[in-house]
Simulated scan of single mutants.
Amino acid sequence: MLLFRLGPRYLFIRSKNIDEVADYLESSLGGEVTEFWKAWEKSSEYSTICFITDINHEKTYVEDAVKIVLINDVSTVILSSIVNSHMCHLVHRVDMGPAAIIMRIAGNEPALIDKIKEVFSAKEVDWYEGIGLGEKDDTIIAFTDKVLNGPVSDFLEPKLLIPQPVREVQNRLRLEGLKLITQSLNDSQWYELRINIYDSCGKYKENYDRLMYILSKLE
């Protein structure tokens, strides 16, 4: 079971020429002007949601966006494209929002979220609040009980804003995520299962790889 994956990144683009910037993102980068929730429904871990606002803001929030553009590419590609296409004159300022992690949980969900909140010294937020308060070196964790192999838009409340870079959060979840989830299960007892592989042709490694592939797809 895939325990967690990255969500889309967020770019806040301030400009006096909002329509021109949106048109460029659509025509040159395959972007789609949409609404925030529809962008989430279509996004993947390789996507970027761009919030285009005017320049009269000390700090920009989701609610300030005049246009929202979903681009199915990472933020670094978008920024380099703007620079290399000599479109910088249209952009007043660019800010990167917090990273996002989507985590699949099971068992006693409120208790697990509380435990993760404690482990990471996190703050409970909703999406708009988390994106607005978070900075580029912060991470939002959103929880779901759905599979993570495709787009996810059905989330549990609350989300958590963590004052740590996404790489640090990922590393800790890799080490402790499974333990935290199993501790939250109503029946946390483990059972040992032994599987013997027999093959008259001696292709044990090939059969082992097949078995591991199948097990990795189980939910």
Rank of each mutant, 00 (worst) to 15 (best):
Y198A: 12
D187P: 01
D19Q: 11
M1H: 11
L180V: 01
Y191S: 12
D54G: 05
K123D: 11
W40D: 06
L173K: 01
Y208A: 08
K146S: 03
L211N: 06
G30Y: 14
F155C: 00
I105H: 01
S153M: 07
A122G: 14
H57K: 14
Y128I: 11
K117E: 12
E192M: 13
E124N: 08
M103L: 10
V125K: 06
R104W: 00
A22R: 09
L79W: 05
E32Y: 08
I197V: 15
L161S: 01
G150R: 10
K136Q: 10
C50K: 07
I82G: 00
P151L: 07
I78K: 07
E192W: 14
K115S: 13
N186D: 11
Y213L: 15
I105A: 01
D95R: 06
L133I: 14
I162H: 00
G132K: 12
L173P: 00
A111V: 03
I52S: 04
L180A: 03
K67W: 09
A65P: 03
D73Q: 14
I55T: 15
N84Q: 15
C88R: 10
P8Y: 11
G132R: 11
I140E: 02
R104P: 01
I82K: 01
P98E: 02
F36T: 05
F51R: 00
S43D: 04
K59A: 12
I82N: 00
Y208L: 15
A22K: 07
S80Y: 05
F143K: 02
D126N: 15
Y128W: 07
G97Y: 07
R9E: 13
I214Q: 09
E32R: 14
P158Q: 09
S47R: 06
F51W: 00
F4P: 02
